[in-house]
Design a protein around this nucleic acid. Structure first.
Lengths: 171, 171
DNA sequence: GCTCATGCTGATCATTATGACCAGTCCAAT
DNA sequence: ATTGGACTGGTCATAATGATCAGCATGAGC
């Protein structure tokens, strides 16, 4: 997997996109102080390299009625991961799932409309022939809301771009 | 917290937005077979009720060079959550964090550019006066990629809208 | 059945943006 | 010094936008 390095202009564009919902290319070029064609070229590159995978919409599940959130770990039968993946995909309450190191094999982020709904998910998981054991913790509150830009900012802050507004200490 | 119920037209709009990146309102109205002003009104409502919180961009951190991902649990000192939150916010590698039930108090999703970078995060966490103990698991792979629409589809599928294309079994 | 509030429609207006493309200049790597 | 690629300001034909509106349809409540 080749990954690309983002520079300060990439970051400015991503930030502008995030902070100005549904802004078009011309508006982004105004905010970032580069030519419109430059924004187009940069977006094209961010999309074609897979850094930008889409444009939301970003959804708050709680506002949409899904008030319960939990993390569930699964110990699975030896070699059962290939079997389990489509099972998890077929459960709408599984928001995301990862194979991990540690005593459990899979960690899932789950959302549900109620505790009963969550319990149904757990029951379904326990019923799977691939799953040996589950543990779960319920989310009580959000300490840090989901974000990725601070991490990208950190790595991009040293990388100038050629556009005048993005050269070393020029602005 | 009042939450709104989504109906089939809400879902069609959200889905169209997701599947047609940067599509404008007119295009969404074509895809969903309702009037443009209806899409505008629906989006306005989805945004003002907090269901839609933004429009990305959706970023693949791995493509952007952050190749390591982990989940970290924290046991914290009694009553130290208020103190910890700004500390976590200040660490760019903390993508999201939740207070949870269970033996640990906080669960964090972490990304980093390398295992050394991840270790630095863990060291910083252990150095915090609020943190008594940390455990971590490293993500080996993605089993289910992040998604929310299947869950919303499930709850919206019974709810017709008044637009002709969205009445009971009319289409 | 009747009433009425609300959702949906197709339309208008003035303004602006879009995608695609281009020739020229600039800059950083070699 | 050379050169490839990044960036610029610009063009073209086309289409979209936000805001608004009057009218119609529908479904909930009585």
């Amino acid at each position: 997997m080749i990954s690309m390095s983002l520079d300060r202009l990439d970051l400015a564009i991503l930030t502008a996109l995030h902070e100005h919902p549904r802004a078009g290319v011309l508006e982004i070029s105004r905010i970032t102080q580069v030519a419109r064609a430059t924004v187009q070229a940069r977006l094209q590159r961010l999309e074609s390299t897979g850094v930008v995978t889409g444009y939301g919409p970003d959804i708050d599940l709680e506002a949409a009625g899904q008030h319960v959130s939990a993390f569930v770990t699964l110990e699975i039968a030896q070699g059962a991961l290939d079997q389990l993946a489509p099972e998890l995909e077929a459960m709408p309450t599984i928001l995301e799932a990862y194979a991990t190191t540690g005593s459990a094999d899979v960690l899932c982020k789950v959302a549900a409309s109620s505790h009963a709904d969550l319990q149904e998910t757990l029951i379904a998981l326990n019923r799977s022939p691939s799953v040996v054991r589950t543990t779960s913790v319920v989310v009580l509150g959000t300490v840090v809301a989901p974000r990725v830009l601070p991490l990208l900012e950190r790595s991009a802050e040293q990388r100038d771009a050629r556009a005048p507004a993005y050269r070393t200490r020029s602005t």
